[in-house]
Computed example of a mutant assay.
Amino acid sequence: MKLRIDQLRAQLQTQLMPVYIVSGDEPFQVAQCGDQIRQYARDSGFGERHVYHVEKGFDWGDFLTTANSLSLFAQKQILELRIPGGKPGSAGSEALLEYISHPSPDNLLLMITDRLDNTVQKSKWFKALEKVGVFIPIWPIESRQLPGWLNQQLKVDGYRATGDALSLIAERVEGNLLAASQELEKLKLLARDKTIDAATVQEAVSDHARYDVYQLLDSALEGNIKQCVRILGILKGEGTEPTIILWALAREIRLLSHLSRQLSRGIARDLAVEQSAKVLGFVPYMLKRRTSLLSQAIRRSSERNLRQMLLYTGKIDRCIKGLEKGNVWDQMLTLTLNLAGLPPIEVIT
C-alpha cells in the first residue's frame, strides 16, 4: 500500500500494519512520520524498540535473531531499520524476504531510508514488504506548497491562520521545516481564539531563511529575479566574502559559455547540458534538477551576452582588489540579474 504523508494519520487510526517504509530526502518530514508510527505502535503495546543502522558489514543475522527471539512473556517490539542508501544488498534482500515469509504479530518493522529510486521499488524484497505493509514516499515541499503545509500543521491542533499570516510565515522560514514547526508552536501560545493573523506573525517570527551561494546560483539560472535580490542581500548582511560569490558566478557563466559553443557546433542541447552537469559532480537525485536549471538558462543566454558577463566578472574582480573604483555589491547584483535574464551587460573593452 502506497500512501501520502498526509494520509498516514487516518491509516494508523484504522489499523496498525506490520511494515512501514518511510522514504525521502526531507529530514523533518521523515522524522515526523516516524514519530507518528512509533507513537501509535507504543499505544498498541509495542513496548520495546530495536534500532539498526545498516552500513557496510551490517550483521543481518543479528536482526533476524532479534525478530525471532520473542518469548511467551516478551513485549511486542518495533524493529527499526535505518538504511541511508535504501539498498540493503544481497544479504539484506535475503534477510528481509526471510523475515516477511513468516512475520510475527509481535513485531512491527519500520524502515527509514533516503529516497528510493524506481529500481529499488521494483526489487523483490521491496514488493514483498509493500504487499503486507505501507510505503510512504516523502517529497520536499516547494515554496508554493509551504503555506498549505503550515495550515495543515495548525489544523491538526485546532488552530487556524489567515492567508496573509501563512504567506508571511512561509517567507520567513523558507525551506526550513524545522524552523517552521518551532515558530508554529510559539505562535499557538500567542494566538487569540486559536486564530493567528499577520500582525502576530510580524511581531513573533524571526527570519529563518538561510541561504548559500549555490542557492543564489540556482535562483539565477531559474530566472527568479525577486529571489536573487533577496538572497544576495542576505549574503551581504551575513558578511559573505564577495570573492566567493564572484567565483561561483564566474564558474557558472563559463559553463554556460562552454555549453553555448557546443550547441553552435551542433551537439544536442539535452546531451550537452547533461554532460556538463555530470562534470560538476552532482549526485543522481540532484542531477535532474541541475540539468533543468542549465537548460532554462542556456535558452535565454546568447554567446555574445555570456562573453560580456565574463568580461564583467573581471571588472568586479578588479574592484574587489582595489584596482578600479565601483560598488562591488551593486555590480554583483547587476551580474546576477543579468544571469537571471535581465537586459544584457555592455562592457566596453
Rank of each mutant, 00 (worst) to 15 (best):
residue 149 W to R: 03
residue 160 R to F: 01
residue 143 S to D: 13
residue 175 G to Y: 01
residue 150 L to M: 09
residue 169 I to K: 02
residue 165 A to N: 06
residue 169 I to S: 05
residue 142 E to N: 05
residue 152 Q to A: 15
residue 140 P to T: 07
residue 177 L to G: 02
residue 181 S to H: 14
residue 169 I to L: 15
residue 163 G to K: 12
residue 171 E to Q: 10
residue 157 D to G: 00
residue 156 V to L: 08
residue 153 Q to A: 11
residue 170 A to G: 14
residue 164 D to N: 15
residue 172 R to F: 01
residue 174 E to T: 04
residue 144 R to V: 08
residue 147 P to T: 12
residue 151 N to Y: 04
residue 176 N to K: 04
residue 174 E to G: 03
residue 165 A to R: 06
residue 166 L to T: 08
residue 173 V to D: 02
residue 167 S to T: 08
residue 174 E to V: 00
residue 169 I to Q: 02
residue 143 S to V: 12
residue 145 Q to D: 09
residue 167 S to K: 08
residue 153 Q to K: 15
residue 179 A to K: 10
residue 158 G to I: 10
residue 158 G to E: 09
residue 165 A to F: 07
residue 179 A to G: 07
residue 154 L to R: 10
residue 159 Y to F: 15
residue 168 L to N: 03
residue 170 A to V: 06
residue 156 V to I: 15
residue 155 K to F: 10
residue 161 A to P: 07
residue 145 Q to A: 08
residue 156 V to Y: 13
residue 154 L to A: 12
residue 153 Q to E: 14
residue 153 Q to M: 11
residue 146 L to Q: 13
residue 173 V to A: 02
residue 154 L to N: 11
residue 164 D to W: 06
residue 151 N to K: 15
residue 179 A to F: 08
residue 177 L to F: 06
residue 156 V to W: 10
residue 161 A to G: 07
residue 150 L to G: 06
residue 146 L to K: 02
residue 182 Q to E: 08
residue 148 G to P: 05
residue 169 I to M: 14
residue 163 G to L: 14
residue 175 G to N: 02
residue 144 R to E: 12
residue 154 L to H: 14
residue 140 P to E: 08
residue 173 V to N: 00
residue 146 L to V: 05
residue 174 E to N: 12
residue 171 E to G: 00
residue 168 L to E: 05
residue 171 E to W: 01
residue 161 A to E: 08
residue 154 L to K: 12
residue 170 A to C: 06
residue 176 N to A: 07
residue 169 I to W: 00
residue 171 E to K: 07
residue 162 T to L: 00
residue 148 G to N: 14
residue 147 P to Q: 09
residue 161 A to K: 09
residue 161 A to R: 13
residue 142 E to F: 05
residue 144 R to M: 07
residue 145 Q to Y: 01
residue 176 N to D: 10
residue 149 W to S: 06
residue 159 Y to P: 05
residue 173 V to Q: 01
residue 158 G to F: 14
residue 140 P to Q: 09
residue 149 W to T: 02
residue 153 Q to H: 09
residue 171 E to R: 03
residue 160 R to A: 15
residue 178 L to K: 00
residue 158 G to W: 13
residue 172 R to Q: 11
residue 144 R to H: 14
residue 173 V to W: 04
residue 157 D to K: 12
residue 177 L to M: 13
residue 168 L to C: 04
residue 162 T to I: 03
residue 150 L to Y: 06
residue 173 V to I: 14
residue 147 P to L: 14
residue 157 D to S: 12
residue 156 V to T: 13
residue 163 G to I: 10
residue 152 Q to G: 05
residue 143 S to P: 00
residue 155 K to G: 01
residue 162 T to M: 00
residue 160 R to Q: 15
residue 143 S to H: 10
residue 164 D to E: 15
residue 165 A to P: 03
residue 173 V to K: 01
residue 171 E to T: 00
residue 141 I to D: 05
residue 145 Q to L: 03
residue 166 L to D: 12
residue 146 L to E: 05
residue 148 G to H: 11
residue 170 A to P: 00
residue 176 N to S: 05
residue 149 W to M: 02
residue 176 N to H: 12
residue 148 G to K: 07
residue 168 L to M: 14
residue 179 A to E: 07
residue 155 K to P: 05
residue 157 D to P: 01
residue 164 D to M: 07
residue 149 W to N: 03
residue 160 R to D: 13
residue 182 Q to W: 01
residue 141 I to R: 02
residue 142 E to T: 04
